[in-house]
Nucleic acid binder design. Structure first.
Lengths: 212, 212
DNA sequence: CTCGTATTTGAATCGTCAGTCAACTCGGAT
DNA sequence: ATCCGAGTTGACTGACGATTCAAATACGAG
């Protein structure tokens, strides 16, 4: 049938709306996000938003997932281009520090993670999505560790890569919150330094020139 | 003047309402909390809630602060009763693991922390309260470390106690989120073990019999 | 007992949104 | 030219929920 024209147009709108929603959530917060806001940001009527997503809740969950998804895919692509495990680990760390890479908006995508967490506490749908998103990021760390061990950059005799990844992931989450909320005491640079230090000690390698 | 009857009655209501609010927020989430719910929980009319707090927002911020405050004070009292620094550290850790001590409700007070974080991102009032609350907890950890060094339980030559406390605090936050949201992979017991292990290595001591 | 103030209530108000709907547009197919 | 259905609008509605308020009530002070 009409497999050429419709799907293309649809996908665009769909995506446009998700993107707009993610932006609105990022700067107003989930609680203050109205369908109206998202519609305005797309230059579209509120009715259309519902036409595509059926309900506000469905849209919000999809938008949160979508935004995280995008940034995961982007990071994955970037990682694949880096030849050494040390560079990959460094990139992963830098990308985890709120406001270190000049990526997204004023309020980092970490703000979206917080919203995801709060929502996942009570919304089973979001809890399921969260699990998937979280697992992927931890996997990424673990893969870099395994990669480094394979190439000989990292010592091969350390702890289980998945355990290490989970511990590094936890520390990153905790520090990111501090940077986000408490940036007098915990600055991005300080978080970066701590993360590098912890990663080096846990994995057992030395970061080359990249640091600052 | 009337310094005997009024203040007492007032404080009771005030506190009753804060307590009720904290419970409602804990089990419905900040977003789903209505004044009506809080009123019902106190067996009181919605109007009265506004009579005491002026607006919903003020009440919510106060309730969040109050709940954290209470649990901080309780923990402080308990710590003071423990003679050894190792016991104190252990207690601090146990209290940080969601669902490890049979304290509060179904959803831990960690759920309240999450709400505080999200709100603090955009509400300056909440941000200020958060800073105070957070500082206090980190201080507690630091004090236990200093106490242990003073009594000779912990080696006196380690890193700065405040830095260590901040790092331990960050890890605890990150792990608590995982336990709360992801309890297949990260169980309370596992979080406890990791925390003890990390604390021992960072501070440089051995936990006595208490573990399990 | 009576007044006056602090509490408390219940009903009424008032905005704000999510979600519905009937009509309109428009491009592609026949 | 006509038809059709996806896409789009904008006005409407129905709830819901925070405040407001005037009227009760309680209760200590004199």
């Amino acid at each position: 049938m009409a497999t050429k024209t419709r799907p293309k147009a649809q996908r665009d709108r769909h995506q446009e709306i998700l993107e707009a929603a993610a932006h609105v959530i990022t700067d107003r917060g989930l609680a203050e996000t109205r369908i109206q806001d998202i519609a305005e940001r797309c230059g579209v009527s509120p009715g259309l938003i519902l036409y595509y997503f059926g309900s506000k809740d469905r849209l919000l969950v999809e938008a949160l997932t979508y935004a995280n998804d995008q940034s995961f895919l982007k990071t994955s692509r970037e990682l694949r281009r880096m030849p050494s495990a040390a560079e990959r680990m460094d990139h992963l760390i830098r990308g985890s520090v709120p406001g270190m890479l000049p990526e997204f908006e004023l309020l980092d995508e970490w703000a979206l993670w917080l919203e995801i967490w709060v929502r996942a506490l009570r919304d089973p749908q979001m809890a399921k999505e969260h699990e998937m998103l979280d697992r992927r990021w931890v996997q990424s760390i673990a893969e870099v560790i395994r990669f480094g061990r394979q190439t000989g950059e990292f010592p091969a005799d350390g702890h289980d890569a998945d355990d290490l990844a989970m511990q590094i992931g936890a520390m990153v989450d905790g520090l990111a919150i501090q940077v986000l909320l408490n940036d007098t005491v915990m600055t991005p640079q300080r978080m970066y330094d701590i993360c590098v230090d912890v990663a080096e000690r846990l994995i057992g390698y030395q970061m080359p020139a990249a640091a600052r």
